[in-house]
Amino acid sequence: MYQQDIERSSSDDQGDSQQYLTFMLNGEEYGVEILRVQGIQGWDSVTPIPNSPEYVLGVMNLRGEIVPIIDLRKRFAMDTIPYGPTTVIVVVRVEGSDRTRTLGMVVDGVSEVYRIDNDEVQAMPEMGRQLRQEFVKGLSTVDDKMLILLDVDCLLSVDDIAKDSHKLAASA
């Protein structure tokens, strides 16, 4: 435990840079802080949760824990594709207002791990897009590719899920 904490803090301190795990989604490359990633899991069937928003696929047993699985394409309102051999679930730690949760997100496939200086992260330009501004921490460039760095706390916030569930209940 302590060892882990020490490693974490030391890697945080290393310059002003962070490591990101990147994954593909609809041909775009997204990144999440690697310290938040708890594991990568092959796609397996999930148990749907009644009366939950469409992007919540259901829950899954991850080493004895019940973990909700979010379909990121659906979360971003992208077109869905059938799950293939590269489809994986990235399991991340999400800091909520009340406690830390573990959630999984389904992505098209994992890509790379990059170290990115904090100065190289720029704010997302104002765009009238479907992608909500607060989901994105910023944009960065690696090897002339654009990376979209995500804020998982906001993206997978259960408060949002709760709101969407209520909307669902109200419309039903």
Partner: peptide, 26 residues
């Protein structure tokens, strides 16, 4: 097992459990 631990309380559900085949039942 708690659903709330990583998710939210769901109306009509008291929790979840893991069945013999490893799948989750509500």
């Amino acid at each position: 097992k708690s659903l709330e631990e990583n998710y939210l309380p769901v109306s009509g559900l008291a929790g979840a459990t893991i069945l013999g085949d490893g799948s989750v039942a509500l």
